[in-house]
Simulated assay, not measured.
Amino acid sequence: MKAINEMTMKLELFVLPVSDVDRARAFYEKAGFRLDLAKDVTEDFRAVHLTPPGSEASILFGKGLTTAAPGSAQGLYLIVTDIEEARAELVGRGIAVSEVFHDDKGIFFHGHDGGEVVHDSPGQERLAGPHPERASYGSYATFSDPDGNGWVLQEITQRFPGR
């Protein structure tokens, strides 16, 4: 039962810091993101809005939108129902994606650079291939856009209760 005055919040949009708007747009369209808006308002203000396939949340980048350093966004998760299929789709589109991996303890994954995992967090050990039982939330692959903004594919086939 919903509590009285319970607020609903949905993450809808993430502003992504990029150095070259046209290069970023080409990359995300190549990756299969849907173009929702491309607007050149002034010479100093441009906006490109794209949405990953099947997502309710979108990304926005451009010129004059953020002071964050290009490539500084990390740990952006794209949830997929079949990690190997999603990886193959992106690779087929010309996107460099890490091999599929899992954590030996099934812990939330973080830490990569340029599409390749470069370190494990304390208590975390990466193992090659998808989770042996294909446990939901257990298999990952990573990729980065041309600026180094880091994305994580995560396989979820059954959500935790309440999600």
Rank of each mutant, 00 (worst) to 15 (best):
L153Y: 11
S136K: 14
G32N: 07
L127Y: 02
K30H: 09
K39Q: 13
E99N: 08
T67Q: 15
K63Q: 15
V15C: 09
P52S: 02
I107E: 12
I95G: 00
G106K: 00
A68P: 03
V152D: 04
I83A: 01
F101L: 09
A68L: 15
Q154I: 06
V41T: 03
S139Q: 08
A135W: 06
F45M: 12
Y28E: 00
H102N: 02
P130W: 01
A26K: 11
L127N: 06
F143G: 09
A3V: 08
S55H: 11
T142H: 02
S58F: 02
V15Q: 14
A68R: 15
K105T: 05
S19P: 08
L16Y: 12
G75E: 15
G162Q: 02
P146E: 03
P52E: 04
R159H: 12
M9L: 11
R159V: 13
Y137H: 03
A96F: 06
I95C: 07
G106H: 01
G75C: 09
H110Q: 03
K10S: 09
Q124S: 11
D145R: 12
D104S: 07
Y140M: 03
G71E: 05
P17S: 07
H131E: 14
R126C: 09
F14M: 14
D145M: 09
R25A: 05
A47D: 05
M1C: 13
R34P: 06
D103M: 01
Y137Q: 06
R159D: 14
S72T: 07
I59C: 00
F27K: 01
M9I: 11
I79M: 15
I107S: 10
I156S: 09
Q124N: 02
F33H: 02
D104M: 02
G64K: 05
E125H: 05
F45Q: 11
E89K: 06
I95T: 04
F61C: 00
F61I: 00
L16V: 14
